[in-house]
């Protein structure tokens, strides 16, 4: 028995169940399907419960679970003989890194209106256009609030790669959303 009369297993369960919403959200981005996302989260927890002895209570359960979820997803893709996008091409070089001038002429005006008009489906559509490594880096950083170091552990890549993926992923997303917004505003005026 550990503190408060709770068993280690109960404490472990309490700790890991806290992150179910974030895990489900990330699973949804990876699978793009609520049913598959539920299965992926369920499989993640099954693996976590099985491997709970490897986990030290009170350390970073959240990053540990996200790493399990991601690995489970990659294994599922491999076993289904579908290769993940990240091994298909070297997108790191292909996605442009926007320069100073690009950032200077930043976005539609007024910006508040643009942000208010954005819908979840717009962002999801723009995210889906991003190759998987970029999408994961942006979602883990901007939606889940992980640090670059934690993301590098979850994705199993160096911090410099995480940084580059976030920079390029966000820039691409912003550009894509603004282009969509300007087009829609143009259509409204026409």
């Amino acid at each position: 028995m550990a503190e408060d009369g709770k068993s280690r297993r109960e404490l472990f369960e309490e700790e890991v169940m806290e992150f179910i919403d974030g895990l489900y959200g990330y699973a949804l981005h990876l699978t793009r399907n609520p049913e598959d996302a539920c299965d992926l989260v369920q499989e993640t927890y099954a693996r976590a419960f099985k491997a709970q002895e490897q986990y030290t209570l009170g350390t970073n359960a959240r990053a540990w679970l996200f790493a399990i979820l991601r690995n489970t997803f990659l294994n599922q893709i491999r076993s289904a003989s579908r290769r993940p996008k990240e091994v298909q091409c070297d997108w790191v070089d292909e996605l442009p890194h926007h320069g100073v001038e690009e950032i200077r002429k930043f976005g539609p005006d007024p910006y508040d209106q643009f942000l208010n008009d954005l819908l979840r489906e717009d962002i999801e559509k723009a995210l889906d256009e991003l190759p998987e490594p970029f999408k994961s880096a942006v979602v883990l950083c901007d939606v889940e609030g992980f640090s670059y170091k934690e993301i590098s552990e979850i994705l199993g890549v160096p911090i410099g790669t995480v940084r580059s993926r976030i920079h390029r992923g966000r820039s691409h997303l912003r550009k894509r959303l603004e282009r969509w917004y300007e087009k829609r505003e143009g259509e409204k005026k026409a």
Partner: peptide, 14 residues
């Protein structure tokens, strides 16, 4: 602001 909006819109509930 765009980053905050992404977070607000994309957070899910299981």
């Amino acid at each position: 602001m765009l980053r905050n909006r992404l977070g607000d819109l994309l957070r899910s509930r299981a």
